[in-house]
Design a protein around this nucleic acid. Sequence first.
RNA 1: GAGGCCAUGGUGAAGCGGUUAUCACAGCGCUCUGUGGCAGCGCGGUCACGGGUUCAAUUCCCGUUGGCCUCC
Length: 400
Amino acid sequence: MSLKFTIEKELTNGRGRVGKIETTHGVINTPAFIVVGTKGTVKALTSEQVFSLGTEAVLANTYHLYLQPGEGIVRQAGGLHKMMNWSGPTFTDSGGFQAFSLGVAFNNKVGKIQESSDGEVFTPANLPNFAKVDEDGVIFKSIIDGSSHRFTPERSIEIQQNIGADIIFAFDECTSPHAPYVYQKEAMERTHRWAQRSLSYHRANVKNSINPTQSIFGIVQGGRHEDLRKESAKIIGKMDFDGFGIGGSFDKEDIYTAVGWVNDILPKQKPRHLLGIGEPADIFGGIESGVDTFDCVSPTRIARNGGLYTRDGQINILNAKFKNDFEKIDAQCFCYTCSHYSHAYLSHLFRAKEILGSTLASIHNLYFIVNLVKEIRVSMLEGKFEEFRKSFLERYYKNN
RNA sequence: GAGGCCAUGGUGAAGCGGUUAUCACAGCGCUCUGUGGCAGCGCGGUCACGGGUUCAAUUCCCGUUGGCCUCC
């Protein structure tokens, strides 16, 4: 038995929809922001804190947990939920993205989002040697000790079954948007073969999983090319997955174009997850393009570096003007941090490099983004999505 | 009182007869999108003051001021 997805309401003009994903560990009301806890911990936060700020689900990473503490330990601990004391729904990413982030993207200023003008020469021969792709899978070097490890689709799924998240992802390859068309096509076709292998292995072995109720999502690739994206959506969409992930490295406008092409083809009655996105504007865009769930490291990563979301845009708490600003971070915010502390206190914590700064900033940013998506959900149910989007984004980006 | 050592961004240090004067930390900003408790980028100096030698002085010489050490 896997997840159940129900659509409660659809946008009249647009692809967006409101729904819910039911798993054996609880319900995710969609659209929803999934909080990232790569190594089985949302950095700087306890699971109780993650829960109390309104989080519905957490996403961990197969590659990182495989390296540390190892899938065997996670399984012995009773699986991811028990290990990290998180009783709600969980996801694991397959580790496929690391072929990209540790490969071409490593030290090459290519990320999930970039401007079209960024120039990078794609040089397969000079790939940084943390990851190497072949037909069977990927050879990674451990970021911890440099040792080599091979992931195949089957191996990735086996590890994910030992970790035991409710929703797991097929093993895929994310390409650089600067890679030549022929390479993107080749990688996409390989990803399709890997998707089928991931799916077959999962269906055959899920009974042995630490969480036998886990579902599997296939991942659509295809870069920024319309024909490849549509082909990928068609092929992956026909496979018997429980839902879909949309992967890739994007330009800003792709959130509307590429994601839209894909969602017009994917079967409507299954949930879609946009991997690794995003910032407020991208979330609005993704929802409008028919995405149900998102995960992103951004809220917690920028929080640890002093970046805080407010309704009036992102601020840097390290700016001098906050040293003696005793008002709360966001006047309209009801999070734990805003309920008890001021700009000045967070400014002090960050300048003094006190770890509580990371905790309070992470609580605030996650509350902000998780609840923003909840507000979007309400606006959709009330038929006010367009109004809400316009007023939020105008205010949020008015200073840029 | 005598002798010695020293003076370089906010701090602590490098440097050398010709450098865009280097580094670390602090400071003022910026960047971060399937994690990166990182990292990177930009901005900030009349090289204590006065004089001399030299084509050229932060660098060598003299003096002044200030600091540290030893001796009486």
